[in-house]
Design a binder for these strands. Structure first.
Length: 912
RNA sequence: GCGGAUAUGGUGUAAUUGGUAGCCACGUCAGACUUAGGAUCUGAUGCCGAGAGGCGUGGGGGUUCGAGUCCCUUUAUCCGCACCA
């Protein structure tokens, strides 16, 4: 009987669907395990072979955990709101809902063919009103809460109002946009509009007039993580800084908790590091500088208060709010021109020209609070408005940017730390002895920094503070295809909808572009009295893992019982590209809901594995210039050739299918070939997988040719999961061959089912248990490539073995990787339960004794390290062995171990 | 510029975590069988060398009885942040 994967896979996929094999419910009698994939955005292009990589890994892990007795939640859904569908709608007039629906159907079809164990009853779609009701609900909660720094959690805004009424800001320490000070009387004297404006300064979801990333081409604002190198991540269009009134989320309130929380997570170090950098905590001093002829004090932030005596000028950002006030009449024209110039430059230009020094003197002077010296204040765009206070004290001797500025404008450079050569560059290192600094002289830099923190506070000119690079997340998008804000306006005061009126449904429209006044498309809807912006893509994906726990609950995002059972995601698999976006927002969102008591875990994703990206492997043919003749890669150096991308689907093992090539495109119909050994060999290169390179490999095609089980195992065999690697179909035969070989073990030469009950030999048992141990350990370590190799080694060692004792455990062992073939063989072996419910095999140490001990012994005149000892061997036994051979004795001379450590089942170590 | 990761045959990779480098595959070569195939099976295959043997984990140095693994240094590639004070 042949291995007919098409029939087998169709049969079991149908069976799993009919029987709801993978449906899960809360079951307090079993431990839970929650395995989650980052749900896909259903794009029009469908899945390519790289997309399922992470899904296959998580599917293997889910099936493995289930076999180990866990109640495994493994859901899937769609991140269905987003820009591409809307861009497509603007071009074609097709409603995004229609294209999204169509794309989802296509995704589902492709996913089903690979045999995943998703519980589809729990599917969620972010664009579904019954889903985004809860996105809107969370937003309302954020609107009606503020962050109390003293208790380090979100609290109802009514508490803040009560505090204001009682004593103004005196007893308030809350996260806010700008620090405010007012009394209870001030508060009571405010108009309703003023009160609301004040509260907006504290709400966690708030509206503010801030500098935002504006993308003119997309017609919308973007969050920081949606901009890279001054271009939009989606589409790659230029982004400019613009002051606009926008909705924001106060994620900065959670900066420290998000930083601390990383410690408890099993995430890769690199990913944690990316988040740490993104949060960008830095400890420094806030200091106030008097301004000559003004009551104002200029506030700055510095991490190097020790260099205070080296301050020779100050710089403020062009957007600094006091710029105009600090500018003298003589300098006004120059400053205004400079500010205008800066405004015109895009973010990208500004970044590209970081080496160019520019700036203008304001004409004002400040007083160094320590030396009492008068120092000029400049304006320059190398100081950013959004970080710290938008103003700096410049220490040209010890900061390279200040150095360049001072050199350019001929300002003083005063060294305060010994070391370096200031005629060449600044000395930025935080080491050395202080000089020219009065009371700091002779101190070490680190000592001086610490000392200055205290000194600044003692003198009452500032204090030690912590600054974060993290910014509040811009939450509105001037787009149609997203969640509407449950907000309406009264005299420009934002008013929340009542929770019972959710969801606020997205109204149908026909024209998806902005209005003539440049307003978002929702402004065009007659009778729409709500906010016209919609929420960004990350809104819907921030809490979807909670919804899977209880997807049909219409009373709560997630019910208490479901939340307390499923708690949080045990294993999350997805791409690292979400490090500063989704993975930050989700943590913030979850922590907020945790503060309010809606969820019982502060962190949403306990363990996270980043699968690598699959690149494309392109193939080339070489056309002899000016002809329609193509020369094989090995011979191309003899000709002048032109390299042409060829569809990888008509190339096999880098050899071109000549007939398919002629049929591929009309201009190649009469192509001639110069062959090597009767074959045409193509060239190849690693490139991004994309249509234009003709290197897109569709998983459907692989499933059709080799079957889902082969695809699954081959994707794992390709290399370590975390590593990015090119897709190369060339090696797939090996895996397919392995599965056929496995299949044949269950049949005799005549093709009859031939599992027998003969007793397994010790050698066979050794092979089996070795494999079980290896595979179990590999799955736990996400080392799926080596577990596939272990299966292959196992079959090579077993040879022709039809024994039930061996093959049944192997079938279960392989079932997470190749579930279809495992189900079929399991059923042929006479079981009428699904292989998913079979207990995952355990290994028995007694069959693995050979690896129990290793110790240096002498073999063939060289000191070797392999010898078997029985489990009962003592240190004395082993020590005796060492000194029995002359070579070992010699080795021991002058290097005799002081102590011998013996660990059962492990290597023995020598401690000298 | 700062931070992180990686570097092993013709290719993808493996290495009991400091103990015989190259497992398992792909590819290649040779052979068997044959209804000639994109099938199956067997063997060989790191490099140099006829051989004995020598050399081999990006380069250089070090620690060690012993280094792909640890340390220093250097080069290359990839990723993240980037005028962050």
């Amino acid at each position: 009987m042949e291995y007919n994967f098409k029939e087998i896979e169709a049969k079991w996929q149908r069976r799993w669907k009919e029987d709801k094999t993978y449906h899960v419910e809360i079951d307090p009698s079993r431990p839970k395990y929650y395995v989650l994939d980052m749900f896909p955005y259903p794009s029009g292009a469908g899945l390519h072979v790289g997309h399922p990589l992470g899904y296959i890994a998580s599917d293997i892990y889910s099936r493995y955990k289930r076999s180990c007795g866990f109640n495994v939640l493994h859901p899937m859904g769609y991140d269905a709101f987003g820009l591409p569908a809307e861009q497509y709608a603007i071009q074609t007039g097709q409603h995004p809902a229609v294209t999204t629906e169509r794309n989802i159907a296509r995704y589902r079809e492709q996913l089903d063919k690979i045999g995943f164990c998703f519980d589809w009853d729990r599917e969620v779609r972010t664009c579904d009103p019954s889903y985004y009701k809860w996105t809107q609900w969370a937003f309302l909660k954020m609107f009606s809460h503020y962050y109390d720094r003293r208790v380090q959690k979100a609290e109802p805004i009514e508490k803040l109002v009560a505090a204001f009424e009682k004593s103004g800001t005196a007893d308030v320490d809350a996260a806010c946009t700008t620090e405010m000070t007012f009394t209870a009387d001030d508060w009571r004297a405010m108009s309703e509009v003023q009160k609301e404006q004040t509260l907006q300064n504290y709400r966690i979801a708030f509206r503010a007039d801030t500098m935002v990333n504006w993308c003119p081409k997309l017609g919308t604002v973007l969050a920081n993580d949606e901009v890279k190198d001054g271009l939009s991540v989606r589409g790659g269009y230029p982004v400019v800084q613009k002051r606009m009134k926008q909705w924001l989320l106060r994620v900065t309130a959670y900066a420290q908790r998000m930083l601390d929380g990383l410690e408890s997570l099993e995430w890769s170090d690199s990913l944690k590091e990316i988040q740490r950098n993104w949060i960008g905590r830095s400890v420094g001093a806030q200091m106030f500088f008097d301004i000559v002829g003004s009551d104002r004090k200029l506030e700055i932030f510095t991490t190097r208060p020790d260099t205070i005596y080296g301050v020779t000028f100050m710089v403020i950002a062009p957007e600094h709010e006091w710029l105009s006030e600090l500018t003298t009449e003589e300098n006004r024209a120059a400053v205004e021109e400079y500010v205008e110039q800066t405004k015109k430059r895009s973010e990208r230009e500004r970044m590209a020209e970081t080496k160019r020094v520019s700036g203008v003197a304001t004409g004002s002077y400040a007083i160094n609070p320590f030396s009492g010296k008068r120092i000029p204040i400049y304006v320059s765009d190398y100081v950013l408005a959004g970080y710290g206070t938008g103003a700096i004290m410049a220490v040209p001797a010890h900061d390279s940017r200040d150095y360049a500025f001072a050199r350019h404008f001929g300002l003083d450079i005063v060294p305060v730390v010994a070391g370096g050569d200031l005629s060449v560059s600044s000395y930025d290192a935080k080491e050395g002895k202080m000089i020219n600094s009065e009371f700091l002289d002779g101190m070490d830099v680190k000592e001086a920094i610490k000392f200055m923190f205290e000194e600044v506070e003692n003198r009452g000119i500032g204090r030690r503070i912590v600054n974060y690079r993290l910014r509040d997340a811009i939450f509105s998008r001037q787009r149609y295809w997203g969640e509407p804000f449950p907000i309406y306006y009264e005299n420009d005061i934002a008013r929340p909808l009542d929770e019972k009126d959710l969801p606020l449904e997205l109204p149908p429209i026909e024209n998806f572009g902005p209005t003539e006044q440049g307003e978002p498309p929702l402004a065009r809807v007659k009778g729409w009295r709500y906010e016209t912006s919609t929420m960004p893509g990350f809104a819907g994906s921030s809490a979807y893992y909670l919804r899977y726990m209880d997807p049909h609950n219409d009373k709560a995002l997630v019910g208490r019982e479901a939340d307390e059972y499923w708690r949080n995601v045990d294993l999350y698999v997805g791409g690292i590209e979400h490090a500063t976006g989704h993975l930050m927002y989700s943590r913030f969102w979850n922590m907020f809901l945790y503060d309010l008591g809606y969820v019982c875990e502060p962190e949403p994703f306990k363990k996270l594995v980043n699968q690598g990206m699959i690149q494309g492997r392109s193939n080339f043919v070489y056309r002899v210039v000016g002809t329609n003749t193509f020369v094989s890669a090995g011979l191309k150096k003899n000709y002048e050739t032109q390299e042409i991308h060829v569809d990888v689907n008509i190339v096999r093992n880098d050899q071109l299918d000549l007939e398919a090539f002629r049929a591929w495109r009309p201009e190649f119909a009469d192509a001639e070939f110069i062959l090597e050994d009767g074959k045409y060999t193509c060239g190849w290169a690693i490139e991004k997988m994309s249509k234009s390179m003709f290197n897109v490999v569709n998983p459907d095609y692989i499933v059709d040719q080799y079957g889902a089980d082969t695809l699954r195992m081959y994707e794992m065999f390709l290399g370590p999961l975390e590593q990015s690697k090119p897709w190369d179909t060339n090696g797939i035969d090996g895996v397919h061959k392995f599965l056929r070989k496995f299949w044949r073990l269950f049949f005799d030469r005549e093709g009859n089912f031939a599992l027998n009950d003969d007793k397994a030999t010790d050698k066979e048992l050794k092979t089996l248990h070795k494999t079980i141990k290896k595979v179990r350990e590999d799955i736990e370590n996400f080392s799926f490539n080596t577990s596939v190799a272990a299966f292959m080694i196992c079959l090579n060692e077993l040879g022709e073995c039809h024994k039930r004792d061996i093959l049944e455990p192997l079938t279960v062992l392989i079932s997470p990787f190749a579930p279809h073939i495992a189900e079929e063989l399991w059923s042929l072996a006479g079981h009428n339960t699904t292989v998913c419910d079979a207990r995952y095999p355990e290994y028995d140490e007694k069959y693995l004794v050979e690896s129990a001990f290793e110790y240096p012994v002498s073999v063939n005149g060289k000191v070797r390290f392999k010898k078997e000892y029985p489990l009962s061997a003592t240190v004395a036994d082993i020590s005796a062995d060492i000194v029995t051979t002359p070579e070992a004795q010699k080795w021991l001379e002058g290097a005799a171990p002081k102590k011998i450590i013996v660990v059962p089942g492990k290597i023995i170590n020598l401690v000298k």
